[in-house]
Structure formats: structure tokens, C-alpha cells
Amino acid sequence: MKDNSIAIIDLGSNSIQFAIYQIENNLVKTEEAKRVKVAARLISYVNSQGNITREGIDFTLQILKEFKKHGEESGVNRIIGFATAVIRNAANKEDVLAEIQQETGIPFSILSGYEEAYFGFLGIIQATDLQDGITIDIGGGSTEITLFRNRQMVEYHSFPFGAVNLNDQFTKGENVTAQQTERLQAYLVEQLQTLPWLSKAGLPVIGIGGSAKNLSRIHKAKCKKNSLNMSIQDIHHVYEELSSLSVTERANIKGLSKKRKDIIIPAVQIISILMEMTQSPYFLYCTQSVRDGFIYNLIEKTNNAS
């Protein structure tokens, strides 16, 4: 089989991403051969009725059409897309998907909470040799956590909160107050305690996605080490510094994307509480993503069908 390529569009709550994968002999040849990302923050276009607004739909269609054009110019053989929490939870999700199909012709599916968690786990398993661990993927509007043992996912949960909607609910504003962070912490502890399998698991926590990446980059810039492993104390130090600064001041933190400076506090807080609750020995950022798990699963299904 000659080389071919597939473009995956990941329509998330905080960003919309386009990634091209090269396929050779029914295997993913590389990680992402090319990636384009737009920080669309589609979750901010959800109205009080739970519908994605006309403005949000039009903005999404504009981005998808640009991605389709980019894919055609790059000579990809196939473009497929998936949506996560922002579309999954929208009251008008069927209408949005129908309009995407009509306007772009790109086949889109909505990932369930299980699929989003599983594909994140699958991406991590492909990239590490860890036998046991806990995975976390903090999106804009959902957070997926899994427990794996002997490289098999044995538990999972998808929470309907992420960095963007937690910030809107608890920490919005130029300066975060102690009262805000205390309310956020109490809420997150209450939520995570609903998963008894997390208690004192004593396993590494592996994070994927933009929030985990930014946390790791901040730490790396500070300690100037190649090791990406972070202790709970390392995470506390990052959190204390970030929460002491205004949103504007956070723009000067090395390793922190300016597009995440307003939503990083809730994300770091989730990881911090998860580390404490599980008594984890360390946190590790993994460069793989839900997209990687999605493409691995797609290729595996294709191979099994042939």
C-alpha cells in the first residue's frame, strides 16, 4: 500500500485543531505531520438555553472551511472530524452537525465521554511504556480521567467541567481572590471524591492537552531541566505563583501561552488536587492527544475489517 494521509479535525470547547497524519502499510507512520490550531473558545458561544449561537456556528464553519482548503492544498486523501464536550452538551447539536455536513461535506462524529477518555488513554499508551497510571485530559468544557493497569483501561470518568467553564464559574476576573480559589478547591474535591478508585492509588498521573502542556512548560522554564516529571510540591509552587499574579501579569510567565493566561488556574488546581488525592509520585506531560488515540483506533478498525 502506498503512502496516504488523513487529516483529523478536533472540534473542542477551547480550540479547533487540524492535524495531518501519514499512513504507511496501514500504520500511522509518524505522530502529527502537520498541525494547525485556532483558539476559537466555542464554549463562550453557548447561550442560556444551551444552544450554540448563530455567531458561534458561523465562526466554526469559517474555520472548518479554511481547514478543508488547507487539507486539499496539502493533498490529503481524507478529512474526518470529531467534536467533544461543547457539541456533545449542546441542545442544538444535531442541527450544528447537519449544518457542518451541509456546508463543508466533512464527516463529523460526536465523541461520547467514554470515547474521549479512551482515545486519550490510547494515545498515552502508544507513547509510554508505563504499565499502570492515571490519565487526565483537561479540555475547555470537560475533564476526562482514567485508571489503567497492565496497560488496560479499567476505570474512566468524564466530568462536565474544564478550564474555561470552571474559570467562568469560579475564578473569572483580572485578579483571583482567596475566596474564589477556596470555592474552586471545595468544588473540585467534592467532584473527584465521587471516584473512589482514585483514593490513594499511588500511581503516576499523566496529562495530555494544552493545560498539561503549559504546566509542564512553566516548570521546565523555571528549573531548566530536561525531565518533565513534576512532584506535587512542584505543582504547588507553580500554582502559588500563578494565583498571586493578575491575568495581565501572567502573560510574562515563561512557558505559559497568552491564550491560556486567564484559564490556567482551574486547570492546575485540578491536577494538584488529583495528585494529592491519589498520593501520586509524580506528574508527567505526554505529547500525545485524543486525536492520536482516535487515529490509532481508526486504523485498527480498518485493519480488522480488511
Rank of each mutant, 00 (worst) to 15 (best):
T181Q: 12
G123W: 03
V28W: 02
D168C: 00
S280N: 01
T53W: 09
Q191W: 10
T171C: 07
N304Q: 15
F82M: 07
A127K: 15
N150Y: 09
I235K: 04
V36G: 06
L122S: 12
N175L: 15
E24H: 11
E99L: 14
L122F: 12
Q152M: 11
V238T: 13
L215I: 10
K220S: 10
L166G: 02
R41S: 13
D132R: 11
N297F: 09
K65H: 01
D58Q: 14
A221D: 06
N252G: 05
L203H: 03
G113S: 07
E249H: 02
I100N: 12
G139R: 09
Q193D: 07
V247R: 08
E249C: 01
I134T: 12
I208F: 11
Q185P: 00
Q193I: 02
D129H: 13
K29V: 09
A33G: 13
I79G: 05
N165E: 02
K254G: 00
E115Y: 05
Y114A: 10
T30S: 12
E55V: 04
R149S: 06
K37N: 15
I295G: 03
A305R: 14
Q185R: 13
T302Q: 14
A201E: 02
E72T: 05
F170Y: 04
D58A: 14
E55H: 08
F82P: 06
Q193W: 03
E249W: 01
N92H: 07
F121D: 00
Y118K: 05
K93S: 07
T177W: 07
K172H: 13
F283N: 03
N47I: 07
S158Y: 04
K213N: 15
A85Q: 15
V247N: 03
M230P: 01
G255Y: 03
